[in-house]
């Protein structure tokens, strides 16, 4: 087992377990305000300190991880769910109308500044976790579609696909039976990377107030709240940021480690 896989898996697992644990137990009630104990530095009672309402930061990080993970997972799900079939279809009908349509559509979405459009969507339809998921998910679609199409296209040139065609199998069946299993590794690795990008995007959107709304805790909004308090209590800004960095770092390391383990030659897209 390589080092980055191990480290990445551990970091990701810590956050996942923390998020799951928060459903049944948190060190303190995240809704409970405790003004006398506001902006406390980390100590034995509050391992990561408290915020400007005296809420326990560790508990908020745990509950916030739920939001981040949920948004990113669903967004990757949307991207894969729509992108992979589109990419498979484009590759299967390479050069035809379907391919042209899907590829142009991909180029178009890629040409949009994703965050700006995410802002536009959340602004128009209201801020909230659901709209953030949709906005992030839409931009995951072309990533998976393009990746799938590229990988599938080179597979379609391979002779074992020709052999399957000679055996009379339909393009859909070949895509499902021969193409998809052979690009699964690539998709898993890319999925991990999109997952980490989703966490970053969610943090950005909630930082500008367009992500999950109060009272749902989210890392991005914790940072936004902390901004005016930075001079007084730096830990309020540092703790949620470190949470984001560790989670994203963990996922990236996991992705790299998986790639090295599954197939070092895999080409993922990183933007």
């Amino acid at each position: 087992m390589n080092r980055s896989l191990l480290l990445g898996a551990c970091l990701s697992a810590i956050f996942l377990l923390g998020a799951l644990l928060s459903f049944v137990w948190t060190p303190a009630d995240v809704g409970a305000m405790d003004i006398p104990n506001r902006l406390k530095s980390p100590d034995f009672h509050h391992l990561l300190g408290t915020d400007h309402f005296g809420r326990d930061l560790l508990s908020m990080i745990m509950v916030g991880a739920r939001t981040s993970i949920a948004v990113a997972v669903v967004a990757v799900g949307i991207g894969m769910g729509a992108g992979v079939p589109l990419g498979l279809a484009a590759a299967a009908h390479s050069g035809g109308m379907i391919d042209e349509f899907i590829s142009r559509g991909n180029d178009l979405i890629f040409a949009f500044p994703s965050l700006v459009i995410a802002i536009l969507i959340t602004a128009s339809f209201g801020a909230g976790a659901i709209n953030a998921i949709i906005a992030i998910g839409i931009f995951n679609i072309p990533v998976f579609a393009r990746l799938t199409r590229g990988a599938a296209l080179s597979l379609w040139q391979r002779e074992f696909i020709l052999a399957a065609r000679v055996a009379g199998k339909s393009t859909t069946r070949i895509s499902a039976e021969h193409i998809l299993p052979n690009i699964a590794n690539l998709l898993i690795v890319q999925g991990t990377i999109q997952f980490s990008l989703g966490i970053l995007a969610e943090a950005g959107l909630s930082y500008v107030g367009l992500g999950a709304q109060p009272p749902t805790p989210s890392w991005g909004r914790m940072l936004a709240d902390a901004q005016t308090m930075v001079a007084l209590a730096p830990h309020v800004a540092i703790v949620p940021g470190l949470a984001i960095v560790s989670m994203v770092l963990g996922l990236n390391l996991l992705g790299d480690g998986l790639r090295d383990r599954l197939d070092p030659k895999l080409r993922v897209m990183r933007t």
């Binding site: 391979r158 002779e159 074992f160 020709l162 052999a163 399957a164 000679v166 021969h178 052979n182």
Partner: peptide, 11 residues
């Protein structure tokens, strides 16, 4: 049919 590439002909 039998193809050329003994490595690429099989899933």
């Amino acid at each position: 049919v039998v193809f050329q590439d003994p490595y690429g002909s099989f899933n």
